[in-house]
Design a protein around this nucleic acid. Structure first.
Lengths: 143, 143
DNA sequence: TTCTATGCAAATAGTTTGCACTAAA
DNA sequence: TTTAGTGCAAACTATTTGCATAGAA
């Protein structure tokens, strides 16, 4: 858990992007901002005790992604993960237990531009970089 | 289409990894080897006219991935793509039309090792790097 | 002949949608 | 009061699984 996120701040962020600050949205965005790494939709609905509907969670997350407050991540096959929009970074995924750790960016600057030339694409404006391996606890268990 | 892949070669590759060379597997692996980039499971079953069952395709692809002959790729949300195992490379994805283009590797050597240190993971043995943007045809249509 | 692989159909899992109702603004 | 957002249930899509049968070795 990072430092606690005030309801007021979340309220403001929602309104700033033109979304009504409903109880559910505040709870969801708060949960998103408070979690260490990418979270599953199911996990998000359970964070606040007054667990809200899955459909609401999906709709809200879509809205947050469009508003630029959240990012959708494709890591696990067939289960979407979401994280709050923070500065650009990458992830290390443990292929044994599924744990995900944030990794600070370390790609050479201008790589998007270089790939743009190499690919013949008109625009390259985003990239995802994920690392896979075994975390230390899992590695120890295997010995 | 790359140069045509002989049935014999595919037969051999399958047997080499201990898989029976059934009609379906040969057709599927041949289709995989012949396609330019990542392909969906549905597309693979339709390549050979004697379209075979989806369940068979999934089971076969699993076996091929385990055997190291194929790779599973998570790009589009909720639809798995597969490609034949070739040398390490990355992809550029057009977020408008979905077209995928292979990109030759361009990450600094030793990056896995560096991330291994930075992440505290015991092992980092794989990474995926995907670029997103707009391909030239799509960019022109938008003007 | 033996045993793995296939096809079919049913079962899951994750996600999306329609609609009447609730609650922000 | 107005209109966007929610819950519930049903619909969908991609993928998986059980089981009897076909076919590779």
């Amino acid at each position: 858990m990072k430092q606690s996120i005030t309801t007021d701040r979340v309220n403001g962020e929602l309104r700033a992007v033109g979304l009504r600050a409903t109880t559910q949205r505040v709870a969801l965005l708060q949960a998103l901002l408070s979690s260490e790494g990418p979270v599953s939709v199911e996990a998000l609905t359970k964070v606040s005790k007054g667990a809200f509907d899955l459909a609401t969670a999906y709709r809200t997350l879509d809205a947050l992604v469009i508003a630029g407050l959240a990012k959708r991540i494709e890591l696990s096959q067939g289960r979407a993960l979401f994280e709050a929009s923070t500065e650009h970074h990458h992830h290390a995924v443990c292929t044994t237990c599924g744990k995900i750790k944030d990794i600070d960016a370390c790609l050479p600057h201008g790589i998007d531009a270089r790939v743009q030339k190499a690919s013949g694409f008109a625009v390259i404006n985003e990239h995802s970089l994920e690392f896979f391996g075994t975390c230390t606890p899992c590695a120890k268990k295997k010995i």
